[in-house]
Computed example of a mutant assay.
Amino acid sequence: MVSKSLPMRSEAVCTRQDDEMEAVGIDVSKKKLDVCWLRDASTVKVKSRVFNNDEAGRRALLDWLQKQTKRSPHELGVMLEATSVYHEAVAYFLYEAGVRVHVANPHHVSEFGKSLGKRSKTDKKDSIVLARFLDSRSHTEWVPEAEEVRYLKALLSRLHALDTDIQRECNRQEKAEIQQASDQVLISITKVLQTLEGERKRLEQEIDDHFDDHPGLKSDRKLLESIPGIGRVISSELTAVLRSRNFENAGQAAAFVGLVPVERQSGTSVRGRPSLSKAGSGRLRAKLYMGAVVAIRFNERIKAHYERLVAKGKSKMSALGAAMRKLVQMAYGVLAHQTSYDPQWAR
């Protein structure tokens, strides 16, 4: 099966900082934005300022950058770190204004800072590191997710939170029964559980309705469910992830989910076992784990792959990780080709 890029609405662009684009680093926190404009990269001459992380502050930030640099928005390059959800508002604002926005993995920025000999950590210094990180190499521009994908991800995140709350209440109920707690305590727990389970059913229906309202997403979920080992829950999660960005190939998609093996070897003394990078969503990996357990029984390709690895001496957990990775690669394949899973695809 030939790998193709997934068809997406927007295309990310790989850019390199040059004389035509000013490098700006923004360290984002809940309440403020520490901004650094790299005026001269050779001498690390910078100009910094702090803005509130609210609508008025974001407008003031853009005005200040344009006045200082004498550049149009498209000639401004901004580097942010992916900091929980706090960076999202400023990223969307600047993107819509025409600024070239980049969002970096915090670990990559931290390692770059260490390479500069950075010792102390302050918000102002972090913004300088971000500006220099943008200036130092090529980066892929950040592209917002399609609105329907962003909404789906929010629904799935809320559903996961409800599942966590329900499990906690079930644990409390079991503990209360063992301790022979009062009837009032048991009644309270039962009421909370009923409320949570009722809301969970409502949210599941909301997710189904959202798929029905967006034929493209609905078609993707159906294609994913044609793969043995992928059911309704995993197909929803994979639809959200695989449609959230442009993946160039199946391996890139697997790496994003955190299913690429990382080796630890050095000389003759260090011979660590390879382990999964776990760089992506732990929630999705947990679901893919259960999907892989099913797939090694009912998906002939994955079953053969799993048994072949075990026969070569791989541990069962390592082979199961490979099965998870194979599931993601198959999922990428059916969406890239927009065709249902075919067991006869070349291994």
Results as ranks from 00 to 15, higher is better:
residue 313 G to W: 08
residue 183 D to R: 14
residue 252 Q to I: 06
residue 64 W to N: 13
residue 320 L to P: 02
residue 11 E to P: 03
residue 298 F to E: 12
residue 16 R to W: 10
residue 118 K to V: 11
residue 33 L to D: 06
residue 40 D to Y: 08
residue 267 G to L: 11
residue 298 F to S: 12
residue 253 A to Y: 01
residue 86 Y to G: 11
residue 147 E to H: 08
residue 29 S to K: 09
residue 44 V to K: 12
residue 92 Y to K: 12
residue 97 A to N: 11
residue 233 V to M: 07
residue 170 C to D: 15
residue 20 E to V: 07
residue 153 K to F: 07
residue 43 T to Y: 02
residue 130 L to I: 07
residue 338 Q to C: 00
residue 213 D to H: 04
residue 328 V to H: 10
residue 2 V to A: 01
residue 282 G to Y: 05
residue 260 V to W: 01
residue 318 S to F: 08
residue 31 K to R: 13
residue 29 S to P: 11
residue 282 G to F: 04
residue 88 E to S: 05
residue 46 V to Y: 06
residue 255 A to P: 00
residue 186 L to D: 01
residue 277 S to M: 05
residue 22 E to Q: 09
residue 16 R to V: 11
residue 233 V to G: 02
residue 193 L to A: 13
residue 191 K to V: 02
residue 278 K to L: 12
residue 234 I to L: 10
residue 258 G to A: 01
residue 183 D to E: 15
residue 340 S to F: 02
residue 261 P to A: 04
residue 179 Q to R: 14
residue 55 E to C: 03
residue 38 L to M: 14
residue 345 W to L: 09
residue 217 L to W: 05
residue 258 G to Q: 00
residue 89 A to F: 05
residue 178 I to N: 07
residue 66 Q to M: 15
residue 105 N to K: 14
residue 166 I to Q: 13
residue 54 D to T: 11
residue 20 E to G: 15
residue 23 A to Q: 04
residue 303 K to L: 11
residue 323 A to S: 14
residue 325 R to A: 09
